[in-house]
Write a protein that binds this DNA or RNA. Structure first.
Length: 897
RNA sequence: GCCCGGGUGGCGGAAUGGUAGACGCUGGGGACUUAAAAUCCCCUUUCCGCAAGGAAGUGUGGGUUCGAGUCCCACCCCGGGCACCA
């Protein structure tokens, strides 16, 4: 921090009492003018990068949950600076998004203006909390200088073949006139606005995140994240190992039917097949007699919304027979082929072999439609049947087989007409008989591979990422659609096209996706007349002909409206711009990289900056982003790593989720309940320091905890008490403070304990207990006849990360010169932590009966004697002889009689 | 249904297997003051007892241990996530 002369002059206010409304803006201004929190690229100090999830600047202003996480990271940032680190602590705005656009639709004003108003308000609120952000590094995802690089990253994905277009059924929300991603649809309603949604086919951009499924699972091993979050991502990616198996069809003209199973060892137990209703083989497999039923069922399923699919009533299995049969490759058995909506087209091959004896879903279905159940997995111990209550069939199906396993004696029990899922011993399975599930599985896979009937296969639940929105307020895709002939011409002129062109056929015409050259970025949003979606599925951008329909120079990316004459030169071709825009996730996928070098005009960040700052050492944000944001950002980071843009494969080394703050009534804060706490009100009544302190004092950072308006008084009183320890009512230095003098031994011990504990607690992010300890210290100092200035200085330095304004003020007035932030972190003296007496607890048979203060030199034999004679202990011995004593050093003596 | 996290005073919460309830709030009593606010001091888990003191006590039931809020087993309740993924 600069130590200019005027800084000294202006160092403190002259408030006589704790007037936080004067003090806090005063120090905020000084910090701002001296750029006190500027992070220096390439400094020789060790670096520390602490990141907050940047906010969406909503019209409602800052929510109390924002300052909770932001205070935690600010304490870390200030603490690390005090410990000599070069700290990067940035903030920015995730400012694209639906609400700004809805506001624009309603008012006719450009979403950018509303967005900037909201940002101005958020910035004011955040600054009022005294967070030590480096404001020179502020980013805004809607700024063309920023989204230029969002578009650039998209181009890299495109060139790598990781972006493609596909017409696919997506969630169409009539109320929002937009398509929603699966994750934005909750219980058949839009996440935002709670409007009903329906299925509709549209041309979409899709990112091939599934290509990184394996790496996304692997990378979790290397990061320090909450276990629950790792598990959630793992479950979301949903890796499962198994096999693809080819079944011949009776109608050989249709080719083979490919299915995926995790249990190839149960192949002998397959008694029917099920295809997803949308499976392409269904029309061919449907016999004339079944045609009507099948068509009706397919139609019904297609119209089904997710609400119906997920409702309890729909849990009843449904399905119809196609009339056709497949041949089981292992035994030639003829098995009927059904279609049912419990098989999903989007997973595996959209077709399964059903083994009702060992899969609960197949079992349910088989019971319902009277299909055969054949047991092929047994157990070495008979089971008690009430643990399989799904069936009403009597248990006469119990069979006891003796199989050719190692001892040739062990009976294997298997159950017909029951469902026994899980592992066991293969039975009724010819060459697998007697093998435990794992071995049977690998033997079956080898058998299938040898006969070219199947292969080992890993499947993921993770789907490719639907990456386009039919909205105005998002990053436009740097893509122009051109004809095949023009694309060939472009390919001759350009080296940066993907190996496989991205093409799309619509109304008999195939168009090719031409990426803009990187030099032509950013592609900006055009001005529009109306922000209403076109309603056809295209965004409002489709309504701007001069922007949309163009002559484009496919070499340079220059464009002129198609209404103008075609410019001279071979490179100029006719094109139509992509009208989709990117989802809000795009800008937040890489913002942590832009902070490293926010002004860079030639790269998203310089190599030096990327190397120096590395990735965030700590990332704090809500658990609601456990899957989506954190998975998408990891995906992009891994792609950038593979491209050599970033030097490491994981973006967030350590992650922490702050808990939700509930309303006073113990339920989630919401406008409708009227239990929302507005940070502005708290700052006005108590000050930012009190708010910060209280947010941290509420409980463990990760816990969900209710707001208590009474509780805030407690931490406020603590700050006032600290103020009074330093200053008199007239604002002079408290006469008890002196440069000589010493604390009493007990108080000195508390001081050093506090220095130790506050440091350890900050390191472990246990801010609540750090504050408790500081309260204990102040309560102790209050009783001291003399306060050595050094002790006060130590306390103020501990307090500074938590309550920086009051710490600065008091430091300036009693602590010393300069800023408390440049005064370093106090060190504790381990020798001062050791007392010369200790309190030993006396127990009799494990029950506490008394205690005594003894010198630390006391040994066990002395203590036992002392205990036996202790007036409160003796009566409980009942005159019985001492059997044994246990001494826990420095803590207690337990006498057993 | 499956996978996590959690159940401690009137409340928020503290407790490396070693005095359960630190710290704060609330409530009660007292000091200062003409009075009030602010501040300071004392008390505040429950039950029995005038007191000294005693007993019980960390969701429930078992277990391990000299000793369990903490470790193990079973169960109940609350919160979060996933949910026909073959």
């Amino acid at each position: 921090m600069p130590q200019s002369g005027w800084f000294h002059e202006m160092a403190a206010t002259n408030c006589t009492d704790y007037d936080f409304l004067k003090i806090e803006p005063h120090w905020q201004r000084i910090w701002e003018e001296t750029k006190a929190f500027r992070a220096e690229n390439g400094s020789s100090k060790p670096k520390y990068y602490v990141l907050d999830m940047f906010p969406y600047p909503s019209g409602a202003g800052l929510h109390i949950g924002h300052p909770e996480g932001y205070t935690a990271t600010d304490i870390m940032a200030r603490y690390k600076r005090a410990r000599g680190f070069n700290v990067l602590h940035p903030i920015g705005w995730d400012a694209f998004g639906l609400p700004a656009e809805q506001h624009a639709v309603a008012t006719g004003t450009h979403p950018a203006s509303n967005t900037q108003n909201n940002i101005t308000n958020f910035r004011r609120q955040i600054k009022a909390l005294g967070f030590s952000y480096d404001w020179d590094r502020e980013v805004d995802t809607t700024d063309p200088k920023y989204f230029r690089w969002t578009q650039w990253i998209f181009l890299q994905l495109f060139k790598k073949g990781l972006a493609y277009v596909d017409e696919r059924p997506v969630w169409w929300c009539p109320a929002l006139s937009t398509v929603l991603a699966n994750e934005e649809v909750i219980d058949g309603k839009s996440e935002r606005g709670n409007h009903p949604v329906e299925r509709r086919n549209l041309r979409q951009w899709v990112l091939r995140i599934t290509a990184y499924a394996e790496q996304l699972i692997d990378g979790l091993k290397d990061v320090d994240w909450p276990d629950s979050t790792k598990r959630m991502q793992e479950a979301w990616i949903g890796r499962s190992e198994g096999a693809e198996v080819l079944f011949k069809l009776e109608n050989t003209a249709l080719g083979d039917l490919k299915i995926f199973t995790t249990r190839p060892d149960t192949l002998f137990g397959c008694t029917y097949m099920v295809l997803a209703p949308e499976h392409p083989l269904v029309p061919g497999l449907t016999t004339a007699a079944q045609r009507e039923t099948v068509d009706a069922y397919r139609k019904k399923t297609a119209a089904k919304s997710d609400v119906e699919r997920m409702s309890e009533a729909a849990k009843e299995k449904s399905g119809v027979f196609t009339g056709s049969y497949a041949i089981n490759p292992v035994n030639g058995a003829r098995v009927p082929i059904w279609i049912a909506d419990y098989v999903l087209m989007g997973y595996g091959t959209g077709a399964i072999m059903a083994v009702p004896a060992h899969d609960e879903r197949d079992f349910e279905f088989a019971k319902q439609f009277g299909l055969k159940i054949k047991a092929v997995v047994g157990r070495t111990t008979p089971m008690v049947f009430d643990i399989v209550p799904q069936t009403s069939v009597p248990d006469h199906g119990l069979q006891n087989l003796v199989l050719n396993i190692a001892d040739k004696q062990t009976p294997i029990w298997c159950y017909h007409n029951y469902c026994v899922s899980g592992e066991g011993i293969a039975v009724n399975s010819e060459f697998l008989d007697g093998l435990p599930t794992k071995e049977a599985t690998s033997k079956m896979i080898s058998w299938l591979e040898a006969k070219k009937l199947g292969t080992k296969r890993i499947n993921y639940k993770l789907r490719d990422w639907l990456f386009s929105r039919q909205r105005y307020w998002g990053e436009p895709f740097p893509i122009v659609w051109i004809s095949e002939a023009d694309y060939r011409r472009a390919a001759a002129l350009r080296q940066d096209l993907p190996a496989q062109p991205v093409a799309f056929a619509e109304q008999g015409v195939t168009l090719y996706a031409l990426p803009l050259p990187e030099a032509a970025l950013p592609l900006q949003l055009p001005e529009v007349q109306s922000y209403l979606p076109s309603g056809t599925g295209e965004s409002p951008l489709a309504n701007v002909p001069a922007w949309l329909e163009i002559w484009i120079n496919c070499q340079t990316g220059e464009a002129v409206p198609a209404s103008a004459p075609q410019p001279q030169g071979d490179a100029w071709v006719r094109g139509r711009r992509e009208t989709n825009t990117m989802p809000q996730w795009a800008g937040s996928c890489w913002y942590y990289l832009r902070y490293l070098d926010p002004q860079n005009a030639t790269a998203l960040a310089s190599g030096d900056a990327l190397k120096y700052w590395d990735v965030p050492d700590l990332y704090v944000g809500g658990a609601e982003h456990a899957v989506l944001h954190l998975l998408y950002a990891r995906f992009w980071h891994k792609v950038l790593f593979d491209l050599g843009v970033v030097p490491q494969s994981e973006p967030f080394r350590k992650l922490f989720h702050q808990g939700i703050i509930l309303g006073e009534d113990g339920v989630k804060m919401s406008k409708s309940r009227g239990n929302v706490v507005n940070p502005d009100d708290i700052i006005r009544d108590y000050g930012a320091d009190t708010l910060r302190l209280y947010l941290m004092f509420l409980g463990p950072l990760e816990a969900m905890k209710p707001w208590n308006p009474k509780g805030i008084e407690g931490v406020h009183r603590f700050l006032r008490k600290a103020w009074r320890e330093c200053l008199t009512e007239e604002g002079a230095v408290n006469p008890r403070i002196s440069d000589g003098g010493a604390l009493t031994a007990d108080a000195e011990k508390v001081l050093h304990e506090t220095i130790k504990k506050v440091g350890e607690d900050i390191d472990a992010m246990r801010f609540n207990t750090a504050i408790s300890q500081m309260m204990i210290l102040v309560n102790t100092l209050q009783k001291e006849p003399v306060l050595p200035r050094q002790a006060v200085r130590d306390f103020l330095r501990l307090l500074a990360p938590f309550a920086p304004h009051v710490a600065e003020e008091l430091w300036a007035r009693v602590g010393g010169s300069g800023s408390v932030m440049t005064a370093g972190w106090p060190a504790y003296d381990a020798a001062k932590l050791v007392a010369n007496t200790m309190t030993i607890v006396f127990q009799v048979n494990g029950k506490v009966r008394g205690d005594a203060v003894v010198p630390v030199s006391a040994v066990e034999s002395d203590l036992v004697k002392l205990a036996l004679d202790h007036p409160k202990v003796a009566p409980h011995l009942g005159g019985k002889p001492l059997k044994r004593s246990i001494y826990v050093k420095g803590k207690l003596i337990n006498l057993l009689v």
